[in-house]
Every structure is written in C-alpha cells, then in structure tokens.
C-alpha cells in the first residue's frame, strides 16, 4: 500500500504514482466514526419510530382490510336476507291482496244479501201494515156505515135501538161487507 502524501494539495501516494486502490487511513477512520455514529443516532432517534410507525400503519391497514372484508361478507349476507325477505313480502302482499279481495267479495255478498232480506222484510212489513190499515179502515167504515144506517133506521123506525141491537147490526153488516159479493 502506498503512503499518503499531500502532494500539491491532493491526496496521492507518496511515490507520486496514481493508485486508485489507495486506502487513506484518515478517510477510513473518519468513515468508521461517521458511519458508526450515524448508525447509532439514526437507530435511536429515526429508524425506531419510522419502523414502528410503518409497522403500526401496516397493521392498521391490514386490520381495516380484514374489517372491510368482514363488512362486505356481512353486507352480502344481509343483502341475501333482504332479497329473500323482499321476495317473501311480495308473496305476502299478493296473499293479503287476495284475502282482502275475498273478504271484500264476501262482505259485498253479505251486504247485498242482508239488503235483500231487509227489503223483503220491509216489503212484507209494509204489506202487513197495509193489510192492517185496510182492515181497520173497513172496520171503521162498517162502523160508520152502521152508525149512519142505525141513525137512519132509527129516524125511520122511530125508536132507538139498544146497544145490543147496534152490536148485532154491526156484526151483520161487517159480515156482509166482508163476505164476497157483498
């Protein structure tokens, strides 16, 4: 190995020859100190937080990806469930609609039937009332006619008819009125 000299301000081998492989003891020692010191200082103050920070971030990203995978899986399951539910809801709605229609039809028929019955009942009741009124009217007419006839007869006969007579006459008159062809 050549010896270092400061020839012309340049670090050359002492014999003046050019030796690219020349190893300067000064530079080697300086590099040892600088690199060793740098290794120690960076290891203590820089690489430790950097490596820990990167690992923490890596873990965080990994956890988030796992969580996202799980969430996606859950979302797929939920979607499937909702689709099944939706399909069920369609069927249910159709069933409800059919039932409602059936109910409506049955209610309609029932109402119509009740209305018809009510109409028949009303008609019959009206007919009954008419019949009663008619009978009443006939009876009143017969009484009135009897009274009138009795009055006339009394005035003609000149005597008063007794109560029993009246009743007898009324009954006869009514029977006459009531009998066909009377």
């Amino acid at each position: 190995m050549s010896i270092l000299t400061l020839n012309n301000g340049l670090l050359l081998a002492s014999d003046g020859s050019v030796n690219p492989l020349y190893v300067s003891a000064d530079l080697a020692l300086w590099t040892l100190i600088i690199f060793g010191g740098l290794l120690f200082l960076l290891g203590k103050f820089a690489w430790k937080p950097i490596i820990e920070g990167l690992n923490a971030r890596e873990q965080c990203i990994s956890d988030k990806i796992d969580a996202a995978d799980k969430a996606e899986q859950q979302a797929r399951t939920n979607l499937k469930q909702y689709e099944e539910k939706l399909a069920g809801a369609h069927d249910e709605a159709a069933a409800v609609m059919a039932e409602a229609k059936a109910d409506a039809n049955s209610a309609k028929e029932k109402i119509v039937a009740e209305a018809n019955e009510e109409a028949i009942r009303t008609r019959q009741r009206a007919l009954g009332d008419i019949e009663t009124a008619k009978s009443e009217a006939v009876r009143e007419l017969a009484e009135s006619s009897v009274d009138t006839a009795v009055g006339l007869a009394s005035s003609i006969v000149g005597r008063a008819l007794s109560k029993d007579d009246h009743a007898k006459l009324i009954a006869e008159s009514v029977e006459r009125f009531s009998s066909p062809g009377a």
């Binding site: 690199f35 010191g37 740098l38 200082l41 820089a46 937080p49 950097i50 920070g53 990167l54």
Partner: peptide, 21 residues
C-alpha cells in the same frame, strides 16, 4: 461530504420519524 451527508440524513430521518409516528 460524509459529515454533511450524515447530518442531512440525521435531520431528514428524524423529521420523517416524527411525521410517521
């Protein structure tokens, strides 16, 4: 040059360490 590189590295990576942490 070695000293300058070492000082620059120390400053830059300490800054980076704080940022990452």
């Amino acid at each position: 040059i070695e000293l300058v590189v070492a000082v620059l590295m120390f400053l830059v990576f300490c800054w980076l360490g704080r940022k990452i942490q």
